[in-house]
Write a protein that binds this DNA or RNA. Sequence first.
DNA 1: CGAGCGAGTTCGCTTCGTCTAATGCCAGGT
DNA 2: ACCTGGCATTAGACGAAGCGAACTCGCTCG
Lengths: 227, 227
Amino acid sequence: MRASTAVEDYLKGVFALAVAGGVSTSAIASALDVQPASASSMIRRLRDAGLVDWEPGGHIELTDDGWRAALDIVRRHRLVETFLHQVVGLELWEIHDEAERMEHAVSERLVERIDEMLGHPEVDPHGHPIPAPGAERYVEPDLVALSAVDVGVRAVVERVSDHDTPALAHLVQLGLRPGAEVEVIERAAFGGPTWVEVDGARHALGDQLLGSVRCRLSASLDEQRNV
Amino acid sequence: MRASTAVEDYLKGVFALAVAGGVSTSAIASALDVQPASASSMIRRLRDAGLVDWEPGGHIELTDDGWRAALDIVRRHRLVETFLHQVVGLELWEIHDEAERMEHAVSERLVERIDEMLGHPEVDPHGHPIPAPGAERYVEPDLVALSAVDVGVRAVVERVSDHDTPALAHLVQLGLRPGAEVEVIERAAFGGPTWVEVDGARHALGDQLLGSVRCRLSASLDEQRNV
DNA sequence: CGAGCGAGTTCGCTTCGTCTAATGCCAGGT
DNA sequence: ACCTGGCATTAGACGAAGCGAACTCGCTCG
């Protein structure tokens, strides 16, 4: 049987933090927008269900079952997002919140039907990889934040963060969506804005936006082509 | 704010019973598959929320707010069903259970987008009318159960019940879907099966199946054409 | 007339998921 | 050596939603 909505949401949060490198009670609490006490008690329940390894005071780790379950949820989420964008025609910044609820409602059958309709896509519209059905582990592609790209370097946008809806809408308006080519033109001193060029137009971006865009450098792109 | 899943489900149940003519605690309980005690306490909560009129021992009636809320849920349900059938390509008998969960997850925005994609349909694939956005009342079309159609009379299937999945799958297999033309050939005595002809083939049906198919008589169809 | 029956309601209890408040612990600064 | 801040955990409460058991009707049947 499928876990409750709450359990699925926590599992997805623990997964995201595990991939990002640091799972902790307070990180989970702030990701799920609940109090640390609530996260703490849910961690105990996840452990009792065999989904995480944990003992009071220790660190938190997904078990094999936990990885499987989390990847299943993430697969549902990302396929639903892709479907909402490509088939239903919702904008890039609308799909995350919608999928956040729908992922708990769609059946296995519907997910596989959607996957088939979309031709088994490998990434969602934000650029996140879509786990294969039954996947047991997750490899994070090696991408660099736009904030870390040197001046004068050209890069291809591979991923934009999906959480901050207004910021995402703004990025898309500027053309900074997955697949776009971008060049860092100038980085102002003392934390000032960074100028980037996209589609022949220049824009000044702050650190928050720069950090939510992840790229592959065009150089490494060339390397890949040559292999 | 939208009501909880449970409240929405009860509201939909009360709506269905109100349309069918008889709302009662036990009918709600059996429709929702819960104990009468649970239904009883939920009725109190619906009343406290201003969605039904009720006092202990009295009869249960939707308020104006209750009708509005119920019709909104029913609209979501039926549009999602139509979408799953026409766009996603799920079979007629698969869409009800799926929509039952999705109706609580889809946003207003997504529902209206779906409605637009479908060209503002007026009935769902089972033949149930889709309430208009913001509708405040519901008119039940005047249909006759196939079990009440006389021998020798031809009729057009307008609606099949959506609740019993295996029965529905069987009906569809026989061609008894909305839009099909059917003629009652022979009715065996003593509660025996009724023979009907659909698409040139004859089938014997029991009362349960006959009752779940509702039709318009071809005669009244002709009348309508002549008006 | 009274016994029993079915429907509806209330009561007390359980689980889930949340909260606030209190407590424990460890590391750093003075 | 001690105080303090931050993080994690526990304890206790609450609302939502369910259950079973018990009670109260009004009706019907013997």
